[in-house]
Design a protein around this nucleic acid. Structure first.
Lengths: 330, 330
DNA sequence: TTGTAAGCGTTATCAG
DNA sequence: CTGATAACGCTTACAA
């Protein structure tokens, strides 16, 4: 079913059909002719061949989003926002993850004209990939990751999130507040740490003990172990990530401490899951969906050389659940 | 950078370049000519235009996978397997989810030649979509879902999973074993229920109480409430899904019952998460990654009219953790 | 108001 | 051994 078939049936030229299909506003057509064309389209069940169209127009109406790992539920929300934004633009969003081969394998297939832009979420800085993207002139933006060498990113206000969390603990009366940080390589972790430090300073409190972990339950458990081992264990911990918090809570229980009576815990990212932990976890809700949405919006119409530097303040909120309470009387 | 540029530089015809690029085995070329071509390709940084190639060959080297929701971690494993299988075939796999608009919105862009096949995971039976796919002659397979009207699916052996779980509980000495089932509309839920029933019968036990829930924590909590409300509450529950199990466990705790001393729980799907619940959850590990892999393998080379009916036995295992124990002495 | 024609970058089938 | 040439299905000036 091609344009030619429709044209033949409607007894007009392919050009006319094309312009009808695309609602060309400069087309001045007799209503009856348009009807004939529309009827033929319906009759034949014609659908434009997107590949041919892409080749001709050098527009794919398709954006891509790469994430490190689908198992991380944080990305589910980002994807949701990005898909919605793409749909609003009449485009599709396709998502892929960096498997063993890295993203490089995708590049062979994501050449020019095949995709209109790429969102790189959390995949560190695969310089080889970026170089290839630039050569192919496909626009890209880093999502939720910033790196010194790059002037194209959208990130969240992680510092503010940390301040919210620490402020909550301080407000409850805690003074020995530890930080279970993210991996030092992740810039989100760095910003959350900076926010923690600033908030402690502003509250007139000294930094508590600090331990870094990757964003996994196992890492969180280990780090929590070292936080508890010190001479003056904290009464509250600000955890940089909800996955780590799951492991951390388990470790606290293993040590025979009760949450929140003897240990308060608050973490970044409010996932469904948080409300089903034991006890339900107090979190900072980040505008992840908004992040995905904004990423696609910015990507749309971005020139390969434009720079984008945006820190999304967005709606951010402390979700108070049962894992935080005033510190024990001593 | 097109074939023509390379051809000009190497002083050969585009056709020659094309066949060098594609390693055409029927090409008989002088080594020095080939070197010239290769050098020009490198020099110019030429990369084939995938869109043009797709238009010409009617092959996209791209498969699609549609899932209902990225937040469901079950799909993360499926995607992982599917991406790996696609990569092994030199193709990419792109994943999308059914947002408000349903998958229909994608179809405009996933026309013929743009995608070589589609895996439909768990998205019920969107008949409109399937009709469109068939018209566009793009092969598709249902993944982890079977429906009477459809002879193209790959599913897991849910019955066997249920038998494993129930067998474990029976082995521990339980006799009053309830089933917290999935939504009656889901065929996975039906098969798990069938397996439960069969296993109970074979063990000489009567069906225990049964309550259905959607595959969410909230649903699981409610259903567990009704299981506990009966006159002879069970000593163990086989839960059809790990998300429900999370809610169910919470509800059991709220009722003041201790897991596993007073209530054993085993659920289908072994997610990372399961080992971080309190207590760690005994599960049946399903070959989800294998499911994704198999889906892509079958899709590859599938003719639009071929039928595929496969029940993946795959590696399946009971992962014993702390949520199951012998029943109380009474 | 509609038709003509020249591509978009490839690949496949012939010739030579 | 290599070069012409005709598609693939569509868009878009421009001509009629």
């Amino acid at each position: 079913m091609t344009l030619a078939d429709v044209a033949a049936m409607a007894k007009v030229d392919r050009a006319v059909v094309s312009r009808v299909v695309n609602d060309d506003p400069t087309l001045n057509i007799r209503p009856e002719t348009r009807q004939r064309v529309l009827a033929a389209i319906k009759e034949l069940g014609y659908r434009p061949n997107v590949t041919a169209r892409s080749l001709r127009t050098a527009r794919a109406h398709m954006f891509g989003l790469f994430i490190p790992d689908f198992a991380n539920p944080v990305y589910a929300e980002i994807i949701k926002g990005a898909e919605a934004a793409a749909a609003a633009l009449g485009c599709v969003l396709v998502t892929g993850s960096a498997t063993g081969a890295g993203l490089g394998g995708y590049m062979d297939l994501l050449g020019p004209g095949r995709i209109d832009g790429l969102l790189l979420a959390g995949s560190g800085e695969d310089t080889g990939l970026i170089e290839q993207l630039d050569r192919a002139a496909v626009p890209w933006i880093m999502l939720n990751r910033r790196s010194p060498a790059v002037d194209r990113y959208v990130i969240l206000d992680d510092e503010r999130a940390a301040r919210l969390a620490v402020g909550h603990l301080v407000g409850l009366g805690h003074r020995r507040i530890a930080h279970l940080a993210g991996p030092s390589g992740a810039d989100t972790a760095q910003r959350r740490f900076a926010g923690y430090s600033a908030a402690m300073r502003e509250a007139g409190l000294p930094d508590g003990p600090i331990a870094a972990a990757d964003y996994t339950p196992a890492g969180g458990a280990a780090a929590m172990g070292s936080l508890l081992a010190g001479p003056h264990p904290p009464t509250a911990v600000f955890v940089a990530n909800v996955a780590s918090a799951i492991g951390a809570m388990e470790r606290v229980r293993e040590e025979g401490l009760e949450i929140p009576r003897q240990m308060s815990i608050v973490a970044v990212h409010d996932l469904d899951l948080a409300s089903y932990l034991a006890p339900p976890l107090t979190t900072v809700r980040m505008p992840l969906e908004e992040l995905g949405r904004r990423g696609v919006s910015l990507l749309n119409g971005l020139k390969p050389d434009d720079s984008v530097e945006e820190i999304l303040a967005g709606p951010m909120a402390l979700i108070t659940r049962a894992s935080t309470a005033p510190p024990p009387e001593d």
